[in-house]
Write a protein that binds this DNA or RNA. Structure first.
Lengths: 112, 112
DNA sequence: TTATATACATAAATTTCTTATGTATATAAA
DNA sequence: TTTATATACATAAGAAATTTATGTATATAA
């Protein structure tokens, strides 16, 4: 039932940035659960992929973090920086182009 | 002008199989040119990606080859095997699912 | 004679992701 | 009570796909 994860390679940064553009701030575990619920369990975002990706986006200055302790557990909240706000626009345009080109190449009509 | 090639990671096998399901037989260089023309130069399929991918699909029994010399140059024609004919159906369904899920995750409407 | 196009191929390096492992708290189930 | 599951972070080793670079060879246009 799960989708072919292989195909999502390269889309993770865009997915993260887009979720943060819609949600103000989110913590890592929350992102994994959000992806799971949006895709109805079809795409499972692995921790080994997510956390390094978050760290990389932070290192590039696209994300900012604040740490809180909630119910005796650590939470590291991520939000978009100013650069992140700009970059998410680019990434979404790239994703749209990508989908359009892929549909052309695979002779797939857009799903009405 | 070129698309973000990063996003096409994982889609190469599907693209190759689909082109061969539409064209009976093609040779490697022809595939690179076909991808270029379909995407109007936005996606450039590198030889270092294409040839290993073709060899892998052949090793898996999804493609068959015949070699010809045309205008004093070697051409290696690829065509779908019976298994390849079946697999292209699966790959295209996976690609459709992938696009649908990605549009959900990125909150993108299908492009009418 | 130089660059470009055609046509194949592979090796090294890079990037991204999976799998596995580790720490730690809380709670539900057996 | 101890086992499994959920929450919450993190990183290391390995696998896989791709980019970049390089190589061979012929034909043609500049």
């Amino acid at each position: 039932m799960a989708v072919n994860n292989e195909l999502f390679k390269g889309t993770l940064q865009t997915i993260i940035l887009n979720l943060l553009s819609e949600n103000e701030r989110m913590y890592g575990y929350e992102i994994t659960q959000k992806v799971k619920s949006i895709t109805q369990g079809e795409l499972l975002l692995k921790e080994g992929a997510l956390y390094p990706a978050l760290h990389k986006l932070e290192a590039e200055g696209l994300l900012e973090t604040t740490t809180e302790v909630v119910e005796n557990r650590l939470r590291k909240y991520y939000s978009l920086s100013n650069d992140g706000e700009k970059e998410v626009v680019n990434k979404l345009r790239e994703a749209k182009d990508f989908i359009a080109q892929l549909q052309l190449l695979l002779n797939l009509k857009p799903s009405f």
